[in-house]
């Protein structure tokens, strides 16, 4: 007797459609390429990201053979800094999105399965949370603190970003929980938790994945913005946001300092949103046979 194979026909179809879509393939290559680059790059870079090479002679050297992306006002190698900063920026974005997706999905599942009253209370809370301007809130929260460790920064960003996911999941669950197959599972003795994990979660996974991919682009910009405002990743640790911030003062004499991380940032955001769109299209046909 053969073992059950743990595949979902829908997911297989989605992967096939995704790999047939040039936009998604390009976007995925850009994301993977950049991830690989920042993962191994710092080891290969000829200079340390924080090393001040020669503060008299090597300040604001334009891109050259020795310094592919030039140097900054402290004579640090911009390439080394962009690679090292990219690590932080990408790691920051993915971990924050991971946390906010998990929180949002749990809250959404809970509210979607709860009775009308609890659902209403939770979702009004979500509405309230979502109505607070995120950057302003984070600024107010983080600015008075002397030094915020990176993990705490990730958590604060994540806990202001789960509202959209919660709404999405809750809406999907509300729609699916009245379908016949959920009734059938109920009638065959499945508990609420079992129904949530085995029947509802697989159905919300697709849309959740799409929002999360799109959220990566959003959070990476948010991190850059916060770092630019001085409450994000703290110097001397590089991040794309604070490299751009450092460079803005000298934009007219050394534009390469801000341009290099800026270009990376734009590439990631565009790729993430293109991939998210592609994923949505790939998952849409027959993703849920709702009748």
């Amino acid at each position: 007797m053969s073992e059950p194979r743990r595949y979902r026909s829908d997911w297989r179809g989605a992967v096939q459609r995704l790999s047939a879509d040039p936009r998604s393939v390009v976007a995925a290559s850009v994301l993977l390429g950049l991830a690989l680059l920042v993962a191994v790059g710092p080891m290969l870079a000829p200079h340390a990201p924080n090393a001040q090479l020669d503060i008299t002679k090597l300040v604001h050297v334009p891109p050259s053979r020795a310094h592919l992306l030039g140097t900054d006002v402290y004579s640090r190698d911009v390439l080394a800094r962009v690679l090292s900063g990219g690590r932080i920026s990408l790691l920051f974005a993915t971990s924050a999105v991971l946390v906010q997706t998990i929180v949002g999905t749990c809250v959404g599942l809970f509210a979607g399965l709860a009775g009308h009253r609890i659902d209403a209370i939770v979702m009004r809370g979500v509405d309230a949370g979502a109505s607070v301007p995120r950057v302003l809130f984070l600024l107010a929260l983080l600015a008075p603190l002397p030094h915020v460790p990176l993990w705490m920064l990730v958590l604060t960003v994540a806990f202001t970003g789960w509202f959209v996911t919660a709404r999405l999941v809750r809406g999907e669950v509300r729609a699916i929980r009245t379908t016949e197959f959920v009734h059938a599972a109920h009638a065959l003795g499945a508990s609420r938790l079992r129904i949530a994990m085995r029947h509802l979660l697989p159905h919300v996974l697709g849309p959740v994945l799409v929002t999360s991919t799109l959220a990566v682009g959003h959070v990476i910009v948010l991190e850059a913005g916060l770092s630019w405002l001085g409450v994000g990743v703290q110097a001397p640790q590089a991040s794309w946001g604070n490299i751009i911030a450092d460079g803005t003062e000298f934009l007219s004499i050394a534009p390469w300092v801000s341009l290099a991380p800026g270009f990376c940032l734009v590439a990631v955001v565009l790729a993430a949103s293109a991939f998210g769109d592609g994923l949505r299209d790939a998952l849409a046909p027959g993703q849920l046979a709702r009748t």
Partner: peptide
């Protein structure tokens, strides 16, 4: 819950919608 499905089981009218589309028959 231990009665449902084990001692008394229900067969629904619409086999199109009463099966979860993301799981195989088995």
């Amino acid at each position: 819950r231990s009665i449902r499905g084990r001692q008394a089981a229900m067969i629904f009218q619409e086999p199109m919608t009463a099966l979860n589309p993301v799981y195989s028959a088995g």
